[in-house]
Design a binder for these strands. Structure first.
Length: 612
RNA sequence: GUCCCGUUCGUCUAGUCAGGUUUAGGACGCAUGGAUUUCAUCCAUGAAACAGAGGUUCGAAUCCUUUACGGGACGCCA
C-alpha cells in the first residue's frame, strides 16, 4: 500500500439529455473535464437539474502527479510538498462532488509511484483502480482528519502577524492577520502576534487596544503574544532591546555593521562606487552586490539587488524596522512570512540580513494589495478611504463572520463556486497556493451581499443577539421589551433584510406606534381607489376573530374576497400601509400575526380616521 | 528616475504552471420578466472580459518577445 500519486487529473464524462424548448429535440451534452473544470461540471449539473434532465455520469478517473502525496485507503497520510495541498483538496473535493452531489460512487484511480511523470497525456497507461465506498470519501473530507493529517507533518510551521499599532486597524492589516492565522490553523502550526512598537512617537495604547479588539472580533486568536505569553517572548519589540543589542554585536563582530553619524549601518558586500541618484538628487555611495533570490510562495522566484547600506540602529539608539523584523523572525523561529506586497522590495534587505546571520530565510508569501475604489483616487487603499476600517463594520453591526469571509476572498479563491464560508470551512480550504497575484479592489456591495448570506443562515437565537445592538441604538428596544415578541418579529424579518444597519428603519413599527409614513407608499396605496372602504370592510371581520393566527387571518381575507368578488390583493397593500406606514416588509400574513390583533385593529382605526 | 510586482466581464474571480473537452465558467452589481400576497426577499432570462502587437504551434486566455497601463519600493516610518 501507500503508492504515491503522481498526477491528479479528474476526468468526467457526463451525458445530459435536455429537451431544447425551441427545437423540441433532445440533444446530448458531453464533457470530459479535468480537475480544473469543476465549475463547469457543477454548471452542467445545475443546468441538468434546472431542466429536470438526467445527468448520467459515464465514469471518471483521478490520477495524481504531484510527488509526495500518498493516499492510503483514501486518506491523506503524508504530505511534504506545500504545493500539493491544493491537489489534496482537489481529490477530496472531487470525491465529495461525486458522492454527495451526483449520487455517484467515487472511484479513485492511482498508479504506481515509480512511473515516469511524462508523457502527458499518457497513452495506454495501466491504471490501478481502487474503489472507494461513498462513506470513505466522506470520511476523507472530515475536517478533523484532514487537519490532523496535515498538522502532524507541518506542525513546525510558525507564522507571525506583526502590526505596528499606529492608528485604526485597516482592512489590509486585518487580511494579513487573517491569512497568517488561516495558514497556521490550516497547517496546524503556530500563530504568533508580535507588536512592532519600536517607533515610540507614533505608537499608542488606544491603537493597540483597537487592534486586539479587532482581531478578537474577527474570531482570530493567537498562540503566542500579548495576553498569552509564549516561549519566545517578550512579544513587544519595545521590550526586546537586549536581544537586538546582542544580535547587533554579532554583526559588528563579523564586520557587517559600522557606525556613521551616530547610527549603525548594515554593510553590504561588494565593490563600492558613487553615482548620482535621480531620486535622492544627490551623489550616493552604492555597492555592486550579488542579487538575492526571494523564494515567494505566491510569485515564484523574485530576483532583486540591494545597493545601499541601510540603517540597523538609529542615532537615538532605537533599532530600525528591517533589523528588528529579521532578528525577531530568527529568534522566534518563524518559518513563513506572509505580508503585503508592499514589503516585497524590502525583502532583499531582509534576505541580506538572514544571510549575514548565517540563517536560512523563511518562506515568503507576498499578498496582493487591496486597491482603493477608483472614485476615491488611485493607489492602495488607505485608512481614510470609505470602508477601510474594521471598526466601521463593527459599528455598523456587520457580522464578523461575514467580514472575515469577505476579506478572505480578497485575493484568495477556493477555486470553485463556493463563496459563503464558515470559519471552519475557511481553515480547511485555505491555502497560499490559491492566492491571487493581482491587486484586488474593495467592493462594498459584495461585502453587503455576503453579510446578508451569513445573516440568513444564522440560527435565530444568534440572529436576535446580533440584531439587538442596532435596535437598542435606535431606541426601539429596551429592558421592558418582550423577548418572545422580539424573537417572532426578527424571525419574519430575517429572510428579508440584508443588514442590521437597516433593521431599525425596516422594523420600527413593530416596536413603536409612532412610525413615519413612507410618502411613496402613501401615494401608491392611499391616494387612489377606495382605501378607506377596504379598511372598513376588513376591520370588523378581523375584530370578530377569536383565534389570531396566520390561517385564521388568511381565512378572513379569503371569505371577504369570495363575497365581494375581489382578490385578496385588494386589501393587502392598504392594510399593510395602515399597520406599518410602508408598502414593504416581511410576508404579509405573518406580519399581521406577529403584530397582534390589538395593534392591527388600533392602527386600522387610526388610519381610517386620518384619511376619512 | 531606478528596481520589483502585476493585468480575464464595471467589481471579486475560475481557467494559465502541464496549449486542444471553452460557445472563456461562477458570484456581486446592472437590465428585463415571473413568483394566487406587498417587498429591500426568492426564481428565471439577458447584456458584459482574455490590455495591445508580434512570434512559436495544426491549434494560444494558456508558451516566448515587446509595448501600454496599473501597483509597490527606493526614510535614522513600519
Amino acid at each position: 500500500m501507500g503508492a504515491s500519486i503522481r498526477r491528479i487529473r479528474f476526468l468526467f464524462r457526463a451525458r445530459v439529455c435536455e429537451c431544447h424548448p425551441a427545437s423540441g429535440n433532445a440533444h446530448i451534452l458531453r464533457g470530459r473535464h479535468n480537475h480544473r473544470h469543476l465549475p463547469r461540471l457543477l454548471h452542467v449539473r445545475s443546468r441538468a437539474r434546472r431542466r429536470q434532465c438526467q445527468l448520467e455520469p459515464l465514469g471518471h478517473q483521478i490520477r495524481a502527479r504531484r510527488p509526495g502525496i500518498q493516499l492510503h485507503d483514501g486518506a491523506l497520510v503524508h504530505d511534504r510538498n506545500p504545493r500539493s495541498h491544493r491537489s489534496v483538496h482537489r481529490i477530496l473535493h472531487a470525491q465529495l462532488l461525486f458522492d454527495s452531489k451526483l449520487g455517484h460512487r467515487g472511484i479513485l484511480v492511482r498508479r504506481a509511484f515509480d512511473r515516469p511523470p511524462r508523457p502527458h497525456p499518457p497513452n495506454g497507461e495501466t491504471l490501478t483502480e481502487v474503489a472507494q465506498s461513498p462513506s470513505s470519501a466522506e470520511h476523507c473530507l472530515d475536517s478533523s482528519l484532514l487537519t490532523r493529517n496535515v498538522s502532524c507533518i507541518m506542525s513546525n510551521v510558525r507564522v507571525r502577524f506583526a502590526p505596528s499599532p499606529t492608528g485604526s486597524t485597516h482592512i489590509g492589516t486585518a487580511r494579513t492577520a487573517l491569512f497568517n492565522w488561516l495558514y497556521a490553523r490550516h497547517t496546524g502550526g503556530t500563530f504568533v502576534l508580535r507588536i512592532e512598537d519600536t517607533d515610540k512617537e507614533r505608537n499608542t495604547q488606544e491603537a493597540l487596544d483597537e487592534l486586539v479588539d479587532g482581531l478578537k472580533w474577527l474570531g482570530l486568536d493567537w498562540d503566542e503574544g500579548p495576553e498569552n505569553g509564549g516561549d519566545f517572548g517578550p512579544y513587544f519589540q519595545s521590550q526586546r532591546g537586549d536581544i537586538y543589542k546582542t544580535y547587533l554585536q554579532t554583526l559588528r563582530d563579523s564586520g557587517r555593521a559600522y557606525e556613521k553619524d551616530g547610527a549603525v549601518f548594515f554593510k553590504l558586500e561588494g565593490e563600492r562606487y558613487t553615482e548620482y541618484d535621480d531620486y535622492q538628487k544627490a551623489e550616493i555611495e552604492k555597492v555592486k552586490t550579488q542579487p538575492v533570490v526571494i523564494d515567494d510562495l505566491i510569485r515564484g522566484q523574485v530576483t532583486r539587488r540591494e545597493e545601499r547600506d541601510f540603517v540597523l540602529q538609529r542615532s537615538n539608539g532605537d533599532p530600525s524596522f528591517h533589523f528588528v523584523n529579521v532578528v525577531d523572525d530568527i529568534a522566534m523561529k518563524i518559518t513563513h512570512v506572509i505580508r503585503g506586497e508592499d514589503h516585497l522590495s524590502n525583502t532583499s534587505k531582509h534576505v541580506e540580513l538572514f544571510n549575514a546571520f548565517g540563517v536560512e530565510p523563511p518562506k515568503y508569501a507576498h499578498l496582493p494589495m487591496i486597491l482603493k475604489d477608483p472614485k476615491d483616487g488611485k493607489g492602495k487603499m488607505s485608512k481614510r478611504d470609505k470602508g477601510a476600517l474594521i471598526s466601521e463594520y463593527k459599528e455598523r453591526n456587520f457580522l464578523p463572520g461575514a467580514v472575515r469571509n469577505f476579506i478572505a476572498l480578497l485575493g484568495w479563491s477556493p477555486k470553485d463556486d463556493q463563496e459563503v464560508f464558515t470559519i471552519e470551512a475557511l481553515v480547511r480550504r485555505f491555502n497560499l497556493d490559491d492566492v491571487q497575484k493581482g491587486g484586488a479592489r474593495f467592493d462594498e456591495k459584495k461585502m453587503s451581499h455576503l453579510n446578508f448570506e451569513h445573516m440568513k443562515t444564522l440560527p435565530i437565537s444568534e440572529y436576535v443577539e446580533s440584531a439587538k445592538p442596532a435596535l437598542q441604538k435606535a431606541g426601539l428596544i429596551g429592558e421592558s421589551t418582550d423577548e418572545q415578541y422580539l424573537l417572532s418579529t426578527l424571525k419574519i424579518c430575517q429572510e428579508k433584510i440584508d443588514s442590521f444597519e437597516n433593521l431599525p428603519s425596516f422594523a420600527a413599527y413593530f416596536f413603536s406606534d409612532t412610525f413615519a409614513n413612507n410618502e411613496k407608499a402613501e401615494n401608491k396605496t392611499m391616494k387612489k381607489g377606495e382605501p378607506i372602504a377596504r379598511i372598513q370592510e376588513i376591520a370588523p371581520k378581523l375584530e370578530e376573530l377569536s383565534a389570531w393566527d396566520k390561517a385564521s387571518i388568511e381565512g378572513v381575507f379569503n371569505r371577504l374576497a369570495a363575497e365581494t368578488g375581489l382578490k385578496p390583493f385588494a386589501w393587502f397593500p392598504v392594510v399593510r400601509f395602515a399597520v406599518s406606514g410602508t408598502n414593504s416588509g416581511p410576508d404579509f400574513l405573518p406580519m399581521l400575526e406577529v403584530l397582534g390583533k390589538e395593534r392591527v385593529l388600533e392602527r386600522l382605526k387610526r388610519t381610517a380616521e386620518k384619511y376619512a
